[in-house]
Design a binder for these strands. Structure first.
Lengths: 184, 184
DNA sequence: CAAGATAACTTAACATGTTAAACAAATTTC
DNA sequence: GAAATTTGTTTAACATGTTAAGTTATCTTG
């Protein structure tokens, strides 16, 4: 996304452009700057990784998000919907739909908290656990292969940087550019 | 995703809910391993970045993908649909729908190639260009702020690593775990 | 050149992303 | 303690992700 923009028209990225690029620079190396933007880099990298996992998940009838939820549930006894949304990194509405489906497939169980009737408590079912156990070996193998190819050291370093990036932006308040609409 | 799994001790999912502390390891550090997986790290990092841009885009009536397309179009005179899908990193069906919408809003122009009637050639309209120019300043400011907060040096380093990760996985053939279905 | 195979899109169908609104249960206020 | 507000979750509505199938045009072969 927001990579440095150069409005079409005059493009003098750096002086001394003696090549015959003229207006055709685009044809030569299309989208150089654009494809290098941080959001695009992150998107492509993630897709490259997920592309490895999706086929295996699909063979077990799971989407990436469904897997994230079941995977998260294996680490806890029960968990509240909101907390589950946080750890599985899903928005409420998506989670709500997926839980409905997973419950219908008997992969999870659900009840309402007695202390607070608004809250729902979710846990994985034995059937869901079996499914996870069936998928896990392949997933682990793929993850190991990725680690091997990229290098364990570098992988750790990358994840450190990603975490740092997150923290760097956590405090950055999002400016909606106008549209302030007087508080009420 | 596929981070090393640890099937936390069998937690008798159904019935016998008496031991409310049994496998408490979970309560202690929920989702430590899971949240550290590479796909989750990439997803969270990207979301942290995009969260900064979305409000501004939204104020201009653009989604992230629509912006990507228009942004890509500013760098070329015209481009074929397939090539556009590649640079904007969108799947054909998504692109097809979005182009239909952008054309209806007169933000892009479209014609079929005379040499090959299957191919569609797309270009940005003057209206689309004006829109881009209206959004660009804010986007650039946000990108600059991100660069400043995280550090230009580190940002470049991060993008290098992401590119390397992509290349590492490019050749890794995706194993669908069985399901070989005899070739036809 | 006509049938078969490819290629470039587009449609279809289902799942999720994203924002807004609805709802019901708790909490706060006056 | 009832009205107003907040909180936890779900619905709704629209846009995109993802895979499969459909369409039309081009290329390959025999």
């Amino acid at each position: 996304m927001g990579g440095p923009l150069k409005m079409s028209g005059k493009k003098s990225p750096n002086g001394s452009r003696s090549d015959q690029e003229g207006t055709a620079e685009a044809r030569r190396a299309p989208m150089r700057e654009f494809s290098r933007s941080l959001p695009m880099s992150l998107l492509r990298a993630r897709e490259a990784v997920m592309r490895q996992f999706r086929p295996s998940l699909r063979n077990h009838g799971l989407t990436e998000q469904q897997w994230r939820i079941l995977r998260a549930l294996t680490a806890v006894d029960t968990i509240e919907v909101t907390e589950l949304a946080r750890v599985a990194f899903l928005l409420g509405p998506s989670l709500s739909r997926i839980l409905r489906d997973l419950e219908a497939r008997d992969l999870i169980e659900r009840r309402t908290a007695k202390a607070d009737l608004r809250r729902g408590e979710v846990s994985i079912s034995s059937k869901g656990l079996k499914l996870i156990e069936a998928v896990a070996p392949t997933s682990e193998a793929i993850y190991a292969e990725i680690t091997h190819r990229f290098g364990a050291r570098k992988l750790a370093e990358l994840q450190d940087m990603l975490g740092e990036l997150e923290r760097s932006l956590a405090a950055m308040e999002v400016a909606g550019e106008g549209e302030v609409e007087a508080d009420e």
